[in-house]
Design a protein around this nucleic acid. Structure first.
Lengths: 224, 224
DNA sequence: ACAAATTTTTAGATTTGTCTAAAATATATT
DNA sequence: AATATATTTTAGACAAATCTAAAAATTTGT
């Protein structure tokens, strides 16, 4: 028998913060780390984590930090999903620039309506990534950031390891060979041209400029 | 020198409620009326109206009820504008039915982003009425509910006085004549067919059924 | 006009989310 | 291992928004 708790805006924000912190160093998340992330005081965090623990959203033992429960992870992913879908909406439908969406999405992510999110998803064509290239959790809570993806889809400044090609034609493979790009190479996306979607990348010790056509045929796995 | 106060969600809701109550009986709005509208206690209302008065949003004298100031009216209209634009959005873009939009719009109306609302307005084609037929306040705070409008645009169950025609061709005037519809007549919109937009109306003591084409060529002024 | 009924306000308490300052616990150093 | 340092928790306070119960003011009825 599953109990459904109402989550306040603040509780949702804490869950989100804990999720993001846990994603990095994968040990228990400390009180002070949460305080820094949320721009608040450790004592406030202690109060909140007690409440979240009572609601079954996190595991908490005094002085030992916290980790998300199944429920908590599900709730956090649901909020992140909403945030990222709204970001796509703002850029695709409302002419926002990719770097001015965050603040508004922070507000929109707390709107409570399952139907609204389902329709939003549909309106946007079920996008898999947000305007920053971050993966959008699926409705059923799937969130595999390690899955291979196209080089065009990874966030700026992130690094991917080449794991395959979408186009396996001779001309494309020749291009890769000629430019010394091989499976296993690490590619960092330095910048993207607004104009044509072409990418400035760092590969090993050299940097180069590749077209959108090239990038959208290279599969990578995100590093770190 | 105008001071811009941050309005909390609760304050915004009170302003909206006061605006709607003032629109009806046009004397000072009583504490108990607000309490009933907001589903809260009179003592809570007293607390809140004091705060709103301090912020210059309402005129308040103990035991004498409240009225909106210029500032307060502007703030209320801004919230109502957002609410109604979001309602149009939900119906037009998100496949919501006109009778299931209210709850979600109540949440969306508090999102703070001028750019978002401007873009929303544009995306929707600068609509003048919401899905219930209610007038959407303009960006600059204009809100003339007494202006003439098409019979197709007034809310269900509301009554309008015929004040003119858009199409002044002989066939249309003949139709009106044949059906005993004249300037000065009061028409109440009883129901609207989803299918073809035709209207069931009450005119004097008889009721009749008119097509969307007829209704969209008759100007009325809203009564009461 | 004056008592009765109603409405409004005050006073004091509660909840959520926050803070500061002090106490408790854990970690690091020698 | 004992002490010093850093982190975490507790305790007490505050602001927003609400409540209940009691007091004050207004309105109503005859």
């Amino acid at each position: 028998m599953l109990k459904l708790f109402f989550m306040t805006r603040s509780e949702e924000n804490y869950l989100k913060a804990i999720f993001h912190l846990a994603r990095k160093g994968n040990k228990a998340v400390t009180t002070s780390a949460i305080a820094e992330q949320m721009d608040t005081k450790p004592s406030s965090v202690t109060d909140m984590v007690k409440r979240l623990a009572e609601k079954g959203m996190i595991n908490y033992r005094k002085y030992q930090g916290v980790s998300l429960t199944k429920e908590g992870r599900k709730a956090a992913l649901s909020i992140i999903r909403k945030h990222r879908l709204w970001e796509v909406f703002l850029v695709e439908k409302m002419d926002f620039a990719w770097d001015e969406v965050h603040e508004v999405a922070e507000q929109l992510e707390h709107i409570k309506s399952e139907k609204l999110i389902d329709q939003l998803d549909k309106l946007l064509g079920f996008p898999r990534y947000d305007p920053h290239g971050d993966l959008i959790p699926s409705k059923d809570g799937e969130f595999d950031e390690t899955a291979k993806r196209l080089l065009t889809e990874i966030p700026l400044k992130s690094t991917g390891v080449c794991v395959g090609v979408r186009d396996s034609s001779v001309p494309f493979l020749k291009f890769l060979d000629k430019n010394n790009i091989a499976l296993g190479d690490e590619i960092t996306v330095l910048d993207k041209e607004e104009f044509d979607g072409s990418l400035h990348i760092q590969i090993g010790d050299r940097s180069m400029h590749i077209s959108d056509q090239i990038a959208s045929n290279l599969y990578v796995k995100l590093k770190e």
